[in-house]
Amino acid sequence: MKVVGVYEAKTNFTELIREVQSGETVTVTKHGHPIAKIAPIFEVQPVENTIAQLKTLRESMRLDGLSVQALREEGRR
């Protein structure tokens, strides 16, 4: 995480934005005290995509005929 003062942030704003676009987080300070944070915004994927990924994961993790309850009981023995 990069730390810059207000004046430096103001004069180099375009360069700071380029760094943020590449994943860097920048903390802006005033008289040595943090006052702001500039961070990248990560896009949120639609719920449907997440559900599809979970279904694919579930399909790839077959229990070979065992139930979750049977596995849980086996773990308690």
Rank of each mutant, 00 (worst) to 15 (best):
I35C: 03
G23A: 01
A9G: 06
H31A: 10
A39S: 06
E43W: 06
E8M: 01
V47G: 07
T27Q: 11
Q21W: 00
T14Q: 11
I51K: 09
E15K: 15
V20D: 02
E15A: 15
V20E: 06
Q21A: 03
P46Q: 12
P46A: 14
I51E: 05
P46S: 12
V6C: 08
L16K: 10
I41F: 11
L16T: 04
T50L: 15
E15M: 12
G5F: 07
A9W: 01
G23M: 01
I41P: 05
V26W: 12
G5E: 13
E24Y: 01
E43C: 03
V28P: 10
I35M: 01
K37M: 11
E8P: 00
P46M: 08
E19G: 10
E48G: 09
T27W: 03
E43F: 07
E8R: 05
E43G: 12
N12Q: 15
I41K: 13
T27V: 13
I38W: 08
T25A: 06
I38T: 05
V28Q: 06
P34R: 15
V26M: 11
I41E: 14
V47W: 06
I51S: 05
T29Q: 11
Y7I: 02
K37H: 04
Q45G: 03
H31V: 00
T50N: 13
T50G: 14
H31K: 10
I35Y: 00
I17E: 10
E19D: 13
F42N: 09
P46R: 10
L16I: 14
A36T: 07
T27L: 08
R18A: 15
T25G: 02
F42A: 05
T11P: 00
Q21S: 06
E24Q: 13
